[in-house]
Design a protein around this nucleic acid. Sequence first.
DNA 1: TGAATTGTTATCGT
DNA 2: AACGATAACAATTC
Length: 272
Amino acid sequence: MPELPEVETIVRRYRPDLEGRRIVGFASYCPQQVRPGVASFRRAIVGQTITRLTRRAKYILAHLDRGGLLLHLGMSGRLEWSDAVGFDGRHVRAAWELDNGRRLVFCDPRKFGRIRYVRDLKDFGTALGPEPLESDFSVTVLGRLLGRHRRQLKPLLLDQSVIAGLGNIYADEVLFRARLHPTTRSDQLTGREVRRLHQAIRQVLRQAIAYQGTSFDWAYAGGRMQTRLQVYGRAGRPCPRCRTPIARIRVAQRSTHLCPQCQPADGRAPAS
DNA sequence: TGAATTGTTATCGT
DNA sequence: AACGATAACAATTC
């Protein structure tokens, strides 16, 4: 399930092959994933050159001469070249033909992904929270975001309008490394805890990018971060810090992994 | 068969 | 009213 590090990895991988290329054709095999309709989408993008490939939150942004193309991978979306060895043609939902004859394919078994054209990329992203790896994402900024709400930490971290890019895996990893319980109220953190949370967010995301993301199953391949996860998917196994078995609970309808010893519910973390 | 996943939207409660 | 929590929904695999 691509979160910020996986999307960043994909953008870096495809950037050299896409920047400067002109789109000469587009096909959709799942029209409900394309906005606006397929016809106007195709009309808007065909003939345009991809000037830059960037990321915002979990979106891939293909900047065009006029406007831009947004791709959200949902939970099972991926990009492939149709001429790649071992290319799996199942679940192809859309394809772009490029001026060098190659065909970029969007595969998405669960169809949660979205493809959009916007006339101006500047209008996009205004409803999204700050990028946690940007230099302006300071401890002060995080403190203000936390204090503005009285919500449980985990759903707050997953809320893309508060902070952009975290998903279920990295939210759990962040809270473990910050030694904070997922249901702690966001407005009740001490200054020290805000600092720990800030550091954990940036460390986890940077490390995950360095490892090219997490590969659990067919949804995303090539990453190695799954070997570095400390709590996610590790229920019942010993905590890397204190050997207490990792617990799995449900918070805001999401499965949540934590160490009951290192992340106590009363918010008082033990001395490090 | 139920659980798992994201983001959006609707609905309920305080 | 505004905010937060909750549920439903889209679709598929294991």
